[in-house]
C-alpha cells in the first residue's frame, strides 16, 4: 500500500505486473488502456525504453470513489524483465498490494519463467512482502503462438496452488481484461480483510471491480 490517509479519505494502491523479459507486460497495460473506458483510468505513462524493452517501468492509474467519499487510486506498474534490471524490479515491488505474473507460454521459455518467478519470490522477501499473503494472478500469455505448453498441462501444474491462472494473448487482446479483473478481485479481498472496506467505507466489491474493469462501449 502506497498511502492510506483516513482523514483525507484517500487510499493509494499498487499492482505490479511481473515476469520475464518480453513476456508481454507492457502489452498487457497497452491493451488495458485501449480496452477500458476513460472515466475510471488515467493515461498510460511509459518511461524511457530501449528497443521496445522497458528499462524503468510503465504506469497506468485507475480511480474509484466510494459512496463514503473514499478515493481509491490503483497504480498499475510493469517492471523491466531483463535480469540486469533487478534493482529496478525490487524498487517497483516496494509496498505492492498485488502481483500479476505474466509468463510466456512457449515451451522454450519455461525455464526463464521459472527463473523469473524465483526472482519474484526473492525480491518480495527482500522488500518485506510475503508471497503467501499477497494476491497473485498468473497469466500465460502469447497463446496465439505455436509450440506452447498445453493449457491442460498448465492447469494441472498450477491448480493445486489455488492461484487464478489465465490464458491470454495480449497482442490479440484477449485474456488481458480477465487477468486484470482477477487481480482487482484478489486485491479487493485482501484489502477488505485488512481495512474492512465494505463495512467502514461502503466499498462494494462488485461495484469496485466493475468500475475498474468497465470496457469501452463499442
Amino acid at each position: 500500500m502506497i498511502e492510506f490517509d483516513e482523514a483525507q479519505k484517500r487510499l493509494v494502491l499498487k499492482l505490479v505486473y511481473y515476469g520475464p523479459a518480453l513476456s508481454g507486460k507492457t502489452t498487457n497495460l497497452l491493451c488495458l488502456h485501449d480496452t477500458l473506458q476513460q472515466d475510471g483510468r488515467g493515461e498510460l505513462m511509459m518511461l524511457d525504453t530501449t528497443e521496445d524493452r522497458t528499462i524503468y517501468f510503465d504506469l497506468l492509474p485507475f480511480f474509484y470513489v466510494a459512496p463514503s467519499g473514499l478515493k481509491i487510486k490503483l497504480k498499475v506498474y510493469t517492471v523491466p524483465g531483463q535480469v540486469r534490471h533487478d534493482a529496478t524490479r525490487k524498487a517497483v515491488l516496494q509496498r505492492a498490494d498485488g502481483v500479476v505474473f505474466i509468463a510466456d507460454s512457449q515451451i522454450s521459455q519455461q525455464s526463464i519463467n521459472a527463473e523469473s518467478f524465483a526472482n519474484l519470490e526473492q525480491n518480495l522477501s527482500l522488500v518485506g512482502l510475503d508471497l503467501e499473503k499477497l494476491p497473485l494472478v498468473i497469466q500465460f500469455n502469447k497463446r496465439d503462438l505455436s509450440e506452447l505448453v498445453t493449457e491442460e498441462e498448465l492447469r494441472t501444474t498450477w491448480e493445486p496452488t489455488g492461484l487464478p491462472v489465465l490464458m491470454a494473448s495480449a497482442l490479440q487482446g484477449w485474456g488481458v481484461l480477465e487477468t486484470f479483473q482477477a487481480a482487482v478481485e484478489g486485491l479487493f479481498d485482501s484489502l477488505d480483510q485488512k481495512l474492512q472496506l465494505l463495512e467502514r467505507f461502503q466499498v462494494d466489491r462488485d461495484d469496485f471491480v466493475a468500475t475498474l474493469t468497465k470496457a469501452k462501449k463499442l
Partner: peptide, 16 residues
C-alpha cells in the same frame, strides 16, 4: 545476502 542494504529512499508510486 545477509545484511542486505534494501534501504530505498524513494517509494515508487508515492503521491506527489
Amino acid at each position: 545476502m545477509t545484511e542486505s542494504p534494501t534501504h530505498i529512499e524513494f517509494i515508487i508510486g508515492e503521491e506527489k
